[in-house]
C-alpha cells in the first residue's frame, strides 16, 4: 500500500504537470481538489484516464470519481481493491 501511494504521488505530479510540487509535499490525506493540490475538473478527467490506462479500472460516471479522488489514501484504497492490472 505504501508503495502504491508513493507511485500515485509520482504519477499525479507527472501527469498533471504539478511543476512546483514535490512528492514529500503531498500527504496521504491531503485534499487533491479544492484547497489542497488545487486540481480542477480537467485533472479529474485525466485521473479517470490514468485509472483505466494504468490500473484497468473504468469509471463510467465522473461523479464516482469525487469520492475516490478525495486523497491519495482514498485513491490507493480503491485501486488496490479494484485493479485489474
Amino acid at each position: 500500500m505504501e508503495a502504491l501511494k508513493q507511485e500515485l504521488k509520482e504519477k499525479i505530479i507527472n501527469i498533471l504537470n504539478l511543476e512546483d510540487v514535490q512528492i514529500e509535499d503531498v500527504n496521504d490525506n491531503d485534499a487533491l481538489f479544492g484547497d489542497g493540490l488545487g486540481l480542477d475538473s480537467i485533472d479529474a478527467l485525466e485521473l479517470i484516464v490514468m485509472m483505466d490506462k494504468d490500473y484497468g479500472i473504468k469509471l463510467a460516471d465522473p461523479k464516482e470519481g469525487k469520492a475516490i479522488f478525495q486523497s491519495i489514501e482514498t485513491m490507493a484504497k480503491y485501486i488496490s481493491e479494484n485493479r485489474t492490472k
Partner: peptide, 9 residues
C-alpha cells in the same frame, strides 16, 4: 487508445 482530455481541450 487513451485519448487525453487535458490534451484535447
Amino acid at each position: 487508445y487513451f485519448p487525453s482530455p487535458a490534451v484535447f481541450v
